[in-house]
């Protein structure tokens, strides 16, 4: 197992990670925080949509779909 920092949209389905930092600003950042995406939060990529974007993530017991563009603004520590 190796720790690696990467943007959330690069986390493969089935992969688990912990939030490292949010690169989004302003209201976008606020919305991410409202989802409970504070640093250290566990996150798992669970399902790709038919087009591959958006992807559904398991965040604190809720399944939330994020567009790749937005997920790319969330840095995570992945264990691969």
């Amino acid at each position: 197992m190796q720790k690696q920092v990467l943007p959330l949209n690069r986390l493969p389905v089935g992969g688990k990670a912990k939030v490292n930092a949010l690169m989004a600003k302003g209201s976008e950042r606020r919305r991410m925080l409202d989802l409970g995406l504070v640093s250290g939060t566990e996150i798992e990529a669970v399902q790709k949509s038919p087009a591959g974007d958006p992807v559904a993530y398991l965040i604190r017991g809720a399944v939330i779909a994020l567009r790749n563009e937005d997920a790319g603004k969330i840095l995570v520590n992945a264990f691969i």
């Binding site: 399944v63 939330i64 779909a65 567009r67 563009e69």
Partner: peptide
């Protein structure tokens, strides 16, 4: 397009 988050309940 703005960002969006959609819950899959």
């Amino acid at each position: 397009p703005s960002s969006f988050a959609l819950e899959l309940p």
